[in-house]
Nucleic acid binder design. Sequence first.
DNA 1: ATAATTGATGCAATGGAAGTGCAATTATTA
DNA 2: TAATAATTGCACTTCCATTGCATCAATTAT
Lengths: 137, 137
Amino acid sequence: MKTIEQLLESKNIRVTAMRLLIYKFLAEKEIAVTLSDIENAFEKADRTTLYRTIKTFEENVIVHQIDDGTGITKYALCEEGCNCDIKNDLHLHFHCNNCNETICLTEHKIPQIKVPDGFVSENVNLVVKGICDKCSG
Amino acid sequence: MKTIEQLLESKNIRVTAMRLLIYKFLAEKEIAVTLSDIENAFEKADRTTLYRTIKTFEENVIVHQIDDGTGITKYALCEEGCNCDIKNDLHLHFHCNNCNETICLTEHKIPQIKVPDGFVSENVNLVVKGICDKCSG
DNA sequence: ATAATTGATGCAATGGAAGTGCAATTATTA
DNA sequence: TAATAATTGCACTTCCATTGCATCAATTAT
């Protein structure tokens, strides 16, 4: 079990208070968050810092972007099984039309999608929309 | 074979010159277009008019939105097989990382995606990214 | 036919998210 | 301790999406 400090150091990212806080914030959340979410959680910090922290995490495959169709980019920590840096990885995310939350279904893999001749598939973005377990109860 | 006029009238949308032009523009395109694309094609018209025309079309299931992950909403005419108003329809779109164009692959259906217990799938948004037939040649 | 009403269009402005340049601050290394 | 490099905060900018309001065109009622 790596500490957050070790994780950051292993990727040559300097350990700062801000980064630890943002990492912990993301780790506590089960859902994907927007930059505004982070902004609201850290009102003392500057938007730009939060933005750049997330970008740093993204570049180093600590978080990955999720495009759930709401028009606002969301972010979530990469988990054990997350191969979002690998081109052919299939992301599966669920967006709840009721509570508007987006969660990663990392365990649910997607079958290979066939594309017409001449097309080369490099990456697949799949978002299932509907009602999440909390809202359907 | 319905004329555009008939199509609009059947949906209680007034037939205007602008609407006919935009419809024709979309019909000629095989790819999904952004509002800016339409704007560039009709420089004399106001952006708002184009925007609201597309929105009217969207509400009446004449076009559907495509979120291909570029961050900019794209639109394409609903085709014969397009059931984008039906909840369980599976949209499949292909976004070319090279030419940045997005096309509808209406003929390519996707298998039903399984979601965990408690989750209700209403809709699936699937975007395959890669290289299109024109660019891979 | 004309007035009243409804819808379409154009202009101006707003809001939100994403991104950048630069100065100041903090941490690392020489 | 000085020099260097990275991080943070502030101020902007840009781009897309969206709305309010006035005007113009078209439809309906009188």
